[in-house]
Amino acid sequence: MDMTLWNLFEILGTGAFAASGALMGIRKRFDFFGVLMLALITAVGGGILRDGLMGNLPPLALRFPRYSLLALVTAAAVFLSPRPVQRLERLIQVLDAVGLGAFTAGGGLLAIQRGFGEPFMVVAFGLLTGVGGGILRDVLAGEPPLVFRREIYALASIAGALLLLPLNRRMGVEAALYACFALVVSLRLFCVLRGIHLPVARKG
């Protein structure tokens, strides 16, 4: 597998997740430490939750802290100069989709490798890795989580994770990873560009 390319996807996604957490903290008037922590939780919180549920302890984000450090550096840069980042909203959405795809695929594959090979568990761990940090970000910031507000976000993660198990069995790890990644990213960006949302219930 071309891990250099895959690591690039993870780096871009981590930076985008961290930037979204930092911007949320700035909007909520958090101090410097608060912005750093919100960015860190957004970037690696889903993976920490996943590892805790798997019994994969200490979590990978603590054993191999390069992505945690990347999130902190990104958050500090956004805190010091938020306006240029805010003007790159569309780029951040693209990179966020890249992160969602990479983390969904990576989380689901880790579940398979650690013996949690039932389809529901593969999807659950892939989904948790992809969206868990964003949910924690929104809850800590006092916002309704994005994944509960019409956005085709969690569903894109689920759709990609569903491919992992059958493709891993038939075509191997690399094909499964990239197919999951490609489906999540393309579905998420297609819905953003076309303004496609889930329906919401009517009041009364």
Rank of each mutant, 00 (worst) to 15 (best):
A159C: 13
S186T: 08
G160K: 04
G172K: 04
L165P: 01
R169A: 15
L163F: 09
A182Q: 05
C191I: 06
Y178L: 14
L164D: 01
L187T: 00
G172Q: 03
R194I: 11
L167V: 13
A175L: 15
G160S: 06
E174R: 10
A182M: 08
R194P: 07
L165H: 04
L193Q: 14
L162E: 06
A161R: 14
S186M: 11
R194E: 12
S186R: 02
L162Q: 11
V184H: 01
G195F: 15
A175D: 08
R170G: 14
A176T: 10
F181M: 08
A161S: 10
A179W: 10
V192I: 15
L177C: 05
S186I: 06
R194D: 06
C191Q: 09
A161Q: 02
A175W: 09
L164A: 12
G195S: 08
L187D: 00
G160D: 10
L165F: 07
G172N: 00
P166G: 11
G195C: 11
L167I: 07
L167Q: 13
R188V: 07
A176P: 06
L162K: 05
L167R: 11
G160M: 08
A161H: 06
G160W: 03
L177G: 13
V184K: 02
L189Q: 07
A175G: 06
L167G: 15
V184N: 04
G160V: 02
A159G: 13
F181L: 12
L183F: 11
L163Q: 00
L187V: 05
A175S: 07
V184S: 04
R170W: 10
R194C: 14
A161T: 02
G172R: 03
A182T: 15
A179S: 15
L165V: 02
A182S: 15
L183R: 02
R194V: 02
L162P: 04
M171I: 05
L165W: 01
R188F: 06
P166S: 07
A176V: 12
L189I: 12
R169N: 10
Y178E: 03
A182C: 14
L167D: 14
R188E: 12
C191M: 12
F190I: 07
V184M: 00
R169Y: 14
M171E: 12
